[in-house]
Write a protein that binds this DNA or RNA. Structure first.
Lengths: 110, 110
DNA sequence: TAATTATATTGCAATATTACGATATGTTTT
DNA sequence: AAAACATATCGTAATATTGCAATATAATTA
């Protein structure tokens, strides 16, 4: 049906899959990579950096903003986007805990 | 168009977004969570654990297998799935490096 | 070997995503 | 104020994803 059943998952599963899903597209990873590379926050040099039309970039930015991965500040005519460290840290923690649990029980059959 | 343009991204961006995308669904996170919880590798108790039809679970397992996040071993009539630690570790590293870079340049405008 | 159990595949309907042209909105410059 | 720039939104076409019933496949048990 194309519709994800959400009623049976934990809050955490839904919250994390939503954030992670936003990172599951190369254009959005490229945006994040670029925001990370240029020290200061960057607006739509992204449109020049990434080979996608401006509305498409805008749409991807919106998705990243929706899940809280980036923040945008109006800066005159343009908008200054940057990564929200707290949300990225949450994702980092998720995977760190993950690997910790994995390591604590070294009993894989495969 | 629904079709992702891949020709302009780095190998890494494509590789990681593909793996991460597979984790961007609550059912697949639930599968991974469950594989992590039960010490030994588990087959399709998943069908009982997760409130989705058997073909749907099978499909999600396939996606996780395709990106290498899990491996499956035939065990008599059933199949024993487990997490591939190496691939998860790669994801962990990605985010760790990420946060490292973020911390090294504390110059966010937002 | 027939029935049962475990899993995968096929086919399909409903919905979501991706991408972009056209256009709207808001700011700065002239 | 008009032109130019920066960004967002709308509408839409193409494609992908989600979920499942039906069915296929393969191993196990009776």
């Amino acid at each position: 049906m194309g519709v994800t059943k959400t009623e049976f998952y934990t809050e955490e599963q839904i919250a994390f899959s939503t954030i992670i899903k936003a990172l599951g597209h190369p254009a959005r990873l490229a945006i994040i990579d670029h925001l990370l590379k240029v020290n200061s926050c960057i607006c739509n040099d992204l449109v020049n950096e990434i080979q996608l039309a401006q509305p498409t970039i805008s749409q991807h930015l919106k998705e990243l903003k929706n899940v809280g991965l980036i923040k945008g500040n109006i800066e005159g005519a343009s908008i200054c986007y940057c990564i929200d460290e707290k949300v990225i840290a949450k994702v980092q923690n998720y995977f760190n805990r993950f690997v910790e649990v994995l390591n604590s029980k070294k009993s894989n059959c495969c």
